[in-house]
């Protein structure tokens, strides 16, 4: 039985804002299905009472003082942008 369907992959690709052409979708679905099928072995590992690890180091409370640091020259930041309008980054119209 397959783990993921074409519809699943399309839904997730939409969430991730990636358009998949049909040909790509056709190769991806079985590949992702195989990988997720392999990954599913995790569910057979007993983890009762085990805490999840999101950080391997026992670090905590890392902060910095509330002090201003020099900003980036706005020209420098805006130069990176594929499109700009005066001092702004320009994007296709955002419909609210």
């Amino acid at each position: 039985m397959s783990v993921v369907t074409k519809q699943d992959v399309q839904h997730v690709a939409r969430l991730a804002r990636i358009r998949l052409e049909d040909a790509e979708l056709a190769t991806f679905v079985p590949q992702l299905d195989e990988i997720l099928g392999y990954v599913r072995q995790l569910q057979s590992v007993s983890t009762e009472g085990v805490e999840p690890t999101s950080h391997v180091l026992p670090l905590a409370n890392v902060t910095r003082p509330d002090a201003n640091q020099p900003c980036l020259d706005p020209e420098r930041a805006l130069r990176l942008a594929p499109a700009r309008h005066n001092q702004f980054v320009k994007v296709p119209k955002v419909i609210e």
């Binding site: 002090a67 900003c71 001092q87």
Partner: peptide, 27 residues
């Protein structure tokens, strides 16, 4: 009302020139 942003040292002042209060972290 902190001087700097939550995760970087850029000022939080209102009304600055557009895109002048940024750094690699907040961008």
């Amino acid at each position: 009302a902190t001087h700097s942003k939550l995760f970087c040292g850029c000022p939080t002042k209102f009304g600055g020139l557009p895109n002048a209060q940024t750094c690699p972290v907040c961008l």
